[in-house]
Design a protein around this nucleic acid. Sequence first.
DNA 1: CCCTTCACG
DNA 2: ACGTACGTGAAGGGT
Length: 423
Amino acid sequence: MWSHLKQKSIILPSITSEEINKQVDPVLRKMEKNGIKIDVTVFGNLANKLESRLVELEKNIYQLSGEEFNINSPSQLADVLFRKLKLSVNGMKKTKTGISTAASELLKIFDSHPVIANILEYRELNKLVCTYLKPLPLLVDENSRLHTTYGQDTTTGRITSNEPNLQNIPIKGELGKKIRKAFVASPGTKLISADYSQIELRVVACLAEDKSMIEAFKNNEDVHTKTAAEIFHIQPEKVTPDHRRIAKSVNFGIVYGQSAYGLSQALKIDQSDAAKYISNYFDTHKGIKEYVNQMIKKAHEVGFVETLFGYKRYLPNINSHMRSISDSEERMAINTPVQGTAAEILKLAMIELDKKLVIMETDNPENCPRMLLTVHDELVVEAPLDQADKVAKLIKETMESVIKLCVPIVAEVGIGSNWSEAK
DNA sequence: CCCTTCACG
DNA sequence: ACGTACGTGAAGGGT
C-alpha cells in the first residue's frame, strides 16, 4: 500500500513492525528497572492541601443540594441533579443508565445552579488525589523511584504503561504543573524531555502526500495557522487565536474521522459552521481527502489497514450492516496507520538511542545517561549534570534522523531538575 | 465484572 | 433514521 511512498520521498530502515517490537522490548525492560524518582513529601503535602479543600466542597454540595449523598456515585449524583433539582436540559448526552453527569454535560447547566461549579471542582481534585497523589507514593522503592510496567499489546502499536500508569500523569493547569514538578532528577543528574513536534500530522501529511500540509512543514510554518487561513478563507495574518484553536481541532479531528456533529460538540459551535470548516478543509487538502477514501476502501476490500512498517490491524466488522459498527471501524481505518506509524517512529528512536547509550555506559558504568519514560511522542532521560547538554543534543539528533519522511521531523528537547522544568 | 468518569498522547 | 473522535489505564460505584 505504501510502496509508492518508499520510492518517492521516504527513506525508512528495512525493518518490519514485528522486528521493531522485538528490538524495543529489552529497552523497555531496562526503563522499567531504572524507574523515575518522585518527591514523596511534595506528593503528601499536596494531597493534604487538596483533601481539606475537598472537605469544604463536600459541605457546599450537600448544602446546595439539600441532602447528603455519595458525590462519587454518578447514579446518586444524577438523581439529585436531574430528578430532584430538575437541572437537565435538551441535548445532554445519555448513558445506558440515564443522563450523563460527565463534565462536558454538566458544563451545559453550569449557570443554572451554583452546585455545578462545586461538583466540577470536587471531581477534578478528587481525581488527582485518588489516582495520583495518594497511590503513587505507596509504590516507590527504597530510592523513592517509581517503576512502571510497559506493554506492547495494543491495537495500533503504541506502548502502554501500567501499575502505575506513568503515561497519564497530569500536566494541565497549575495542579498538573505542581505534580510534574514532583517527578525529579536524582542527585547529580538532570531530566531531559524530548517531544516529537506534531508527529502524527507530519506522518499523515506524508502518507496522504498532501501538498498543502507538506508545504507547511517544509517551510516550517505554523500548520494550524495555515489551516485556519484555508478553512476561514482569510489571510494568514488575519488569523486570530480563536480561528487557530478551531483549525487545530479540525486538523486533529480529521485524523480521527470526526464528523461535523462531533466537531461542533467539541468546540461548542454551530453544526452547520463545523460542516463548512470540514468541507473547506477537504477542498484545500485533496491529499487528505484521498487518503481517507483510500483507507476506507482498502479496509472494506481486504479487511485490514497497515502502518508504514507493515503492522496490520484487522477490522473484521468493517462490512457490518450496522452502520454504527462499520462507521466505527472506518474511523479506525483512518486513524490506525497514522497513530501506528508515529508509534513505530518513536520505538525506532528508542532502539537507536539505546545503542548509543550502551556505548556511553560501557565507557563509564557509574556515570551514564538512562532512559526512563516513553509517552507516545515523548522520551524522558536522566543524565549526569555534566553530560546533560551533550545527551540532549544526542537525543534530538537521534529522534530527528531515525527515518526520513517527506517533511522534516522535529523533536523539541528540554533540560530541568524535574519533569515540568524539562518540558 | 461492567459501567461511568477522567487522566494522558 | 442513525450516531456521531482515535488509543490507553485507574478508580469508585453498583450488581
